[in-house]
C-alpha cells in the first residue's frame, strides 16, 4: 500500500477525533509511533479508546490540527481581552 493511502486512512480517524468532540487524554510517542488516548466528551463512564498513528504524515497531521486549534483559541482569547 502506498504510504499516502495509509495516511488517508489515519486522517479519517484523526478528523473524527477532532470533529466529534473527543477529549484527548494523552498523546504518547514511542518506538511504535504515536498513541492517542481519547474519550468521548460527556461520556466519562465509558472506557477511553486508543488510536495508533503509524505514518509520519498522520503523526504530523494530528499535532498540526491541534496546534492550529490552540492558535485559533489563543487568537480568540487575545481578541476578547482587547
Amino acid at each position: 500500500m502506498h504510504e499516502h493511502t495509509q495516511f488517508m486512512n489515519e486522517k479519517v480517524k484523526i478528523d473524527q477525533i477532532l470533529q466529534r468532540s473527543y477529549l484527548i487524554i494523552s498523546i504518547e510517542e514511542n518506538l511504535s509511533g504515536t498513541f492517542v488516548t481519547v474519550q468521548p466528551q460527556g461520556e466519562q463512564e465509558s472506557p477511553p479508546g486508543t488510536v495508533h498513528l503509524v505514518t509520519a504524515d498522520g503523526r504530523r497531521y494530528l499535532t498540526s490540527r491541534l496546534f492550529e486549534r490552540k492558535r485559533v483559541h489563543a487568537q480568540k482569547s487575545e481578541n476578547t481581552a482587547r
Binding site: 499535532t63 491541534l66 492550529e68
Partner: peptide, 18 residues
C-alpha cells in the same frame, strides 16, 4: 501548505496535553 509548525512547537504541544 498548512500554517507552519516546528518540531519544537509540536513537542511542546504534546507535553502540554500529556
Amino acid at each position: 501548505g498548512e500554517f507552519p509548525m516546528t518540531w519544537n512547537e509540536r513537542q511542546h504541544l504534546i507535553h502540554t496535553i500529556g
